[in-house]
């Protein structure tokens, strides 16, 4: 990262546990992570490794036990729920595995949801551009139940981008898509990263999906154990993953 250029994401000493006493489970321990602006990184790990928890912490959805999280240079660790929510609305985009669209809102309205929550009047041109970019113009007035899985996920990514966030956090974004749709989605993410310079941190257990990113961080037992460049090579990612995760 060039000197003087603020990182999109900076995590230091992040720790999180759940439960207490004998039931206490340490999910993340002393995790450090830095993403430069325009980065496209993925986090991989086995089930229960803390990937989703990491993403939830970075989004401010859950409070950490320890550590500091800075998004766009702003620390969100010390924010109260209200401030963290407003920050998340304006500066962080979220994409979920289950699309998680609001069933009663149309595609266009789902995309504009952060703006509506922020009580901003949606810029029609901006919305139109997003719809066009994701091939949703003809489907703008359809509610989610009338959209295909791929279309719903495209609505989800458009929603994540509508506020031009510092970072987009994607949690298993292709988990509910078939292979072709998944590949198409990954390609879309790469285009966003290349064209718009959008910083993306993606969580996935699938090496093919992770290979869409430029860099992969391997998470095991709550700690990052490896970081490597993907070269967009799924086989390489898979091999490295298996090697690292071998007991």
């Amino acid at each position: 990262m060039a000197d003087g250029q603020e990182a999109a994401l900076q995590v230091k000493g992040l720790s999180k546990s759940f439960g207490d006493g004998a039931n206490r489970v340490q999910v993340l321990s002393e995790v450090d992570l830095t993403l430069a602006r325009g980065a496209f990184d993925a986090v991989m790990g086995p089930s229960g490794s803390g990937k989703s928890t990491l993403l939830h912490l970075l989004a401010g959805l859950v409070a950490a036990d320890d550590g500091d999280i800075r998004v766009g240079g702003v620390s969100i660790s010390t924010m109260n729920d209200h401030d963290a929510t407003c920050f998340r609305r304006r500066r962080i985009g979220l994409v979920f595995q289950d699309f998680n669209l609001i069933p009663t809102l149309t595609a266009e309205e789902n995309i504009a949801l952060p703006l509506l929550l922020d009580r901003q009047r949606p810029d029609a041109a901006h919305i139109d551009a997003l719809l066009a970019r994701f091939g949703l113009t003809q489907r703008r007035s359809h509610i989610p139940s009338k959209l295909s899985g791929g279309e719903r996920q495209r609505v989800a990514i458009a929603r994540a981008l509508v506020m031009k966030p510092d970072i987009v956090l994607a949690d298993e974004p292709t988990g509910n898509l078939d292979s072709p749709a998944g590949r198409a989605f990954c390609e879309l993410l790469r285009e966003m990263n290349d064209e718009v310079g959008c910083t993306i941190l993606m969580v996935s257990h699938d090496p093919v999906v992770a290979a869409a990113a430029k860099r992969v961080h391997l998470l095991k037992d709550g700690r990052f154990v490896d970081t490597f460049e993907t070269g967009h090579d799924a086989a390489r990612v898979s091999d490295r993953y298996l090697e690292t995760m071998r007991p």
Binding site: A59, D81, T85, C86, R88, R89, N100, P114
Partner: peptide, 13 residues
């Protein structure tokens, strides 16, 4: 779930 999504997207309490 819908409420959780809206909270995640940025709906305050």
């Amino acid at each position: 779930k819908e409420i959780a999504v809206m909270r995640a997207v940025g709906m305050t309490c």
